[in-house]
Simulated scan of single mutants.
Amino acid sequence: MTKLEQLLSQYAAYHLNHKNIVSHFAGIPLIVFSIMCLTARAGVMLSGFELTLALVIMAITIIYYLSLDKIFGLIMLAIFALAYPLAYSIAQWPLAAWLLASIGFFVVGWIIQFIGHFYEKKKPAFMDDVIGLAIGPLFVLAEVVFMLGFRKEIEQRMLEEARKQRALMDAKIMNIS
């Protein structure tokens, strides 16, 4: 099992309910976009180019994703490249409008996430492992790719391992009760 499959499996163990997964299709993009908006306002000019904190965070994230999987990393790079100009334009809005929009996206995204976890009857993955915050967007991308019929071998291994991990989590809860 590759590192990508291990990380996706750990995340998927908290996300086996279809309603929860669907909620993540809206919640996670909103949260990621809100972070882009919030961090695109902080930057420095370098030779006529504004290097924003958002660009730095996106670059680090993409390098990490590429280290896990070239295909998913490149797709995420394209998604970030498409989303960043809009996030940057929102970051140029007057202070109150920028903050209201950015924080609004963030709060709505998390509300959607927690609604999904209500259906799942499990806490979010990041509460047990902070790496879940970085894997969440990759998980959503992977789920879309799987739904389109691609990379099914990864999905199969991920789900098999996730179900095993979930059974262990559930057994621990039963032993505690």
Rank of each mutant, 00 (worst) to 15 (best):
W93A: 12
W93V: 03
W93F: 13
P94M: 01
L95N: 08
A96H: 08
A96R: 06
A97I: 14
W98K: 08
L99Y: 15
L99E: 02
L99I: 13
L100R: 03
L100D: 08
A101Q: 06
A101R: 07
A101W: 14
A101M: 09
A101E: 13
S102K: 06
S102D: 06
S102L: 12
S102W: 11
I103N: 08
G104D: 11
G104H: 10
G104Q: 10
F105P: 00
F106E: 06
F106V: 00
V107D: 04
V107H: 05
V108R: 02
V108I: 14
G109F: 05
W110F: 13
W110C: 05
W110M: 04
W110I: 10
I111F: 13
I111T: 08
I111R: 02
I112A: 07
I112W: 04
I112F: 06
Q113T: 05
Q113S: 10
Q113G: 00
Q113I: 13
Q113V: 12
F114A: 02
F114W: 11
I115V: 15
I115N: 01
G116M: 11
G116W: 10
H117E: 02
F118Y: 11
F118N: 08
F118L: 10
F118M: 04
Y119D: 07
Y119C: 03
Y119I: 09
K121A: 02
K122C: 09
K122R: 15
K123R: 15
P124T: 02
P124N: 03
P124I: 00
A125I: 01
A125T: 06
F126P: 01
F126E: 07
F126H: 06
M127E: 13
M127Q: 10
D128S: 14
D129K: 09
V130D: 06
V130G: 06
V130Q: 11
I131Q: 11
I131S: 12
G132S: 10
G132Q: 13
L133I: 15
A134L: 14
A134Q: 00
I135N: 09
I135Y: 01
I135P: 06
